[in-house]
């Protein structure tokens, strides 16, 4: 188990959880999104390779309505 900050909220995930696993859990794997992991943007090709650990900070963003 690991505790991470996801979009500012505390979330508990399983050990050995990749960013792709996280995206699947929240049903964003096939959506137009971008990810920041501890302040660094993660390229799509690394979603499978990047594993999350305790106290990591993850931001998932997407496009919303705006002017």
């Amino acid at each position: 188990m690991a505790k991470i900050q996801l979009n500012g909220k505390k979330v508990t995930i399983k050990s050995n959880y990749s960013i792709l696993d996280l995206l699947k859990k929240y049903k964003f794997a096939d959506k137009k999104i971008a990810i920041e992991h501890n302040g660094v943007i993660v390229p799509k090709s690394n979603y499978r390779k990047k594993f999350l650990k305790n106290k990591d900070q993850v931001e998932i963003v997407h496009f919303i309505g705006g002017g």
Binding site: L6, N7, G8, K9, V11, Y26, K27, F28, K31, K32, I33, A34, E59, I60, V61, H62, F63, I64, G65, G66, G67
Partner: peptide, 30 residues
Amino acid sequence: TVAVRRVNILDKKKPILTDYLNPKKITLLP
């Protein structure tokens, strides 16, 4: 134009804007 914001992690089924815009017809300007 579109804005960049955090996704809503609490509501997994909520539709999102990009589901309604055809990327072939419309250029998104972030």
